[in-house]
């Protein structure tokens, strides 16, 4: 009797739900929509467990499914509603948190404004911390394409956020210590 009992698929999937949600929110910008995407992803994954190769990267496999679910969702939405471009941007997932993270809200908006494929590449590399090779597999493109998308995404974000090296060269804590400059809305 071999002891190498694989984890039951249910537990295996469970482990990856937090990162699937994080990925889905990063892509869609909305928590509700993200959870619907994750739900569909889990059902699809469950049905296709047979096509998952044991011992390979399950997180990457699930991300690929989620990514495809997301893309077909976009297509569906584009077909259904053609004139509500502005609507999605309004309901940003990251609420202006208690700790006054205005930075993060601005960032979220800028991220949402990127072309889908650039946002996807940036999130896979910069947030989900996949390798370029893994990201290329998930996004179904060449490694070089991922690299250039990530570059373009970073450049676009830097432009949108008016990032100036002189402004952000200091760590926030250090900046705070040096004196309040932009704490406009903080009571």
């Amino acid at each position: 009797m071999s002891e190498a009992q694989p984890r039951p698929p249910r537990d295996e999937l469970l482990i990856h739900i937090p990162s699937l949600r994080a990925f889905a929110v990063s892509l869609s910008g909305q928590i509700d929509r993200a959870d619907d995407l994750v739900q569909e992803t889990l059902v699809k994954a469950w049905r296709n467990l047979g096509s998952y190769t044991e011992g390979t990267n399950m997180r990457a496999w699930l991300f690929t499914i989620l990514r495809n679910v997301y893309i077909s969702d976009i297509r569906r939405r584009k077909r259904e509603v053609q004139d509500t471009d502005g609507v999605f941007a309004e309901s940003v997932a990251v609420a202006p948190a208690q700790n006054g993270h205005m930075d993060l809200v601005d960032f979220r908006k800028a991220l949402d404004g990127l072309p889908e494929e650039q946002r996807e590449a940036l999130v896979l590399i910069g947030a989900a911390e996949f390798s370029y090779e893994e990201a290329a597999e998930i996004a179904g493109c060449a490694v070089g394409t991922v690299k250039s998308r990530v570059n373009r995404a970073r450049n676009a974000l830097a432009r949108k956020l008016n990032l100036d090296v002189s402004e952000i060269g200091l760590e926030p804590a250090l900046r705070a210590a040096l004196g309040p400059q932009d704490r406009s809305g903080v009571a």
Binding site: P18, S19, R21, A22, F23, V25, S26, I31, A34, V94, H101, D103, L104, F107, R108, L111, L122, V123, G126, A127, A128
Partner: peptide
Amino acid sequence: QLRAGYVDILN
């Protein structure tokens, strides 16, 4: 920034 938003959900 990117990581902060992501980890927020992750946790």
